[in-house]
């Protein structure tokens, strides 16, 4: 028996919105410690790594480890049927063919159940080595989303250059070019508005806008985003999910041909 309950479906709704552009299907691995998803987009350029800890749920029970293949489009449609304040419960038997989503309104007067067929999927894990990154930047997630959106108008790729002084985003295209520089905040009263740079060595990397613009769909999950970069390795873009876990996106860089 697997059962996981969240007092408010809002978190799960936001998680689905944050992955639906990149993934068509994904395996949800459920164990005693929580729910994990690791899945690449079809082109194998980006990877979503989602971790929801069991202690972050209001109720969590997982008698046997389960790998449930889910269609992300269908799951997104189902979550859109829940109000943000509804309690959501995921339920499956051992060796399940289906998963049930149960939404209960706050006043307990409405109870909705949606059953979704699971799909058989080959599990393909990527071993991601522990990496010490040359630059780790924490910045407001809305600012990052804004910069990605603005610079996408100028080119297909954004170059991120990070040094002690700050972080510079730039894009160049047929019609012109653009760049946005953010300095490290001196002393920000509000943690959420801070730009913090932890730099060992300066880095300069180029990434496709299309993926960055999918990652920023996670913005409603967290006020800050963490970007970890080293030369010639994939970017890690991380959003904390309240007290329950995190979503990390990995993105392969563009390199000189």
């Amino acid at each position: 028996m697997f059962e996981a309950r969240l007092a408010q479906s809002a978190i799960l709704k936001k998680v689905l919105e944050a992955v639906k552009d990149l993934l068509t299907e994904a395996t949800f691995e459920c164990s005693d410690s929580g729910i994990q998803v690791q899945a690449m987009d079809n082109a194998h350029v980006s990877l979503v790594s989602l971790n929801l800890r069991s202690d972050g749920f209001d109720k969590y029970r997982c008698d046997r480890n389960l790998s449930m293949g889910m269609n992300i489009g269908t799951m997104t449609k189902i979550l859109r049927c829940a109000s943000s304040e509804d309690t959501v419960t995921l339920r499956a038997v051992d060796s399940p063919d289906n998963i049930i989503f149960i939404f209960e309104s706050q006043n307990k007067e409405k109870l909705a159940e949606y059953e979704m067929k699971l799909i058989n999927m080959d599990l393909e894990h990527l071993g991601i080595p522990e990496t010490m990154y040359s630059c780790v930047v924490k910045m407001p997630s809305q600012e990052f989303a804004r910069i990605c959106r603005d610079l996408s108008q100028f080119g297909e790729a954004i170059t991120i250059a990070c040094s002690k002084e700050g972080i510079k985003f730039s894009a160049a295209g047929d019609y012109g070019n653009a760049n946005v520089k953010l300095a490290q905040t001196a002393d920000s009263d509000k943690e959420e508005e801070a730009v913090l740079i932890d730099m060992q060595e300066p880095v300069k990397l180029t990434f496709a806008c299309r993926y960055l613009n999918s990652f920023v769909k996670a913005t409603p999950l967290c006020a800050q985003v963490k970007l970890s970069m080293s030369s010639d390795v994939p970017l890690v873009c991380e959003y904390q999910i309240g007290e329950i876990g995190h979503i990390r996106y990995y993105l392969a860089p563009k390199i000189d041909d």
């Binding site: 082109a43 350029v45 990877l47 990527l126 071993g127 790729a157 392969a252 563009k254 390199i255």
Partner: peptide, 14 residues
Amino acid sequence: KKKQTTLTNFFKKS
């Protein structure tokens, strides 16, 4: 001109 790499260039399948 830059070329898009894939994650399998960096991470091993396990």
